[in-house]
């Protein structure tokens, strides 16, 4: 029991991150489908991925991005590995954007998430075009616009959850930017 408590305290932040990841994945695949508007649901897996890049060190956020990518590949229908690779790229991009821009916190996070959502959908469309299954432009634009519109407000809630659970002021192990 002592050993369990020791390791829990030592890896508390990573454990919380993993639990948030599981929670976001399960919500995305089950409950969120009942809250679709014009058949579009918010992408909280992507929002969680971007939050990982803000609150965790590069190594941790890359590991979590790999896990999110694997979950997305397992539950989706695209060739396996596509989401795994691009999720890693989005984490790197999110960290670069946040490091280079030095204006207000929340605005930067929202802009970063918006850019990631747009790029994710565009990359997916390019990939579908390459494998000869293109997405009509009207549908793509609708998905991009509505997905970002629904995801951004939820991302503020996810940000609050991260702040509450991880409490970066008291946890020096978190590499907060």
């Amino acid at each position: 029991m002592m050993i369990v408590r020791y390791y829990f305290r030592k890896y508390r932040i990573q454990i919380y991150g993993f639990l948030i990841l599981l929670f976001a994945t399960s919500l995305q695949c089950t409950l969120l489908n009942y809250f679709r508007i014009i058949n579009i649901k918010p992408d909280i897996m992507l929002a969680t991925l971007v939050m990982f890049s803000f609150f965790y060190s590069l190594r941790c956020s890359l590991i979590f991005s790999l896990l999110i990518g694997i979950f997305r590949d397992v539950l989706g229908f695209l060739p396996f590995g596509f989401n795994t690779i691009i999720c890693v790229l989005w984490v790197i991009l999110a960290r670069e954007i946040f490091q280079r821009l030095s204006i207000e916190d929340k605005l930067i996070r929202c802009i970063t998430l918006f850019i990631i959502i747009v790029l994710n959908n565009l990359t997916l469309n390019c990939f579908m075009f390459i494998i000869n299954k293109p997405i009509p432009t009207g549908i793509l634009l609708k998905v991009i616009f509505l997905e970002s519109l629904f995801t951004l407000p939820l991302s503020l809630m996810i940000y609050k959850i991260f702040i509450f659970l991880l409490n970066p002021v008291k946890s020096p192990s978190i590499n907060r930017l």
């Binding site: 994945t25 995305q28 695949c29 089950t30 489908n33 649901k41 979950f71 997305r72 989706g76 229908f77």
Partner: peptide, 13 residues
């Protein structure tokens, strides 16, 4: 028991 997490496809599990 589950749906595709993406908005660009319609898959159920």
């Amino acid at each position: 028991i589950g749906y595709d997490p993406s908005n660009l496809s319609s898959i159920i599990i």
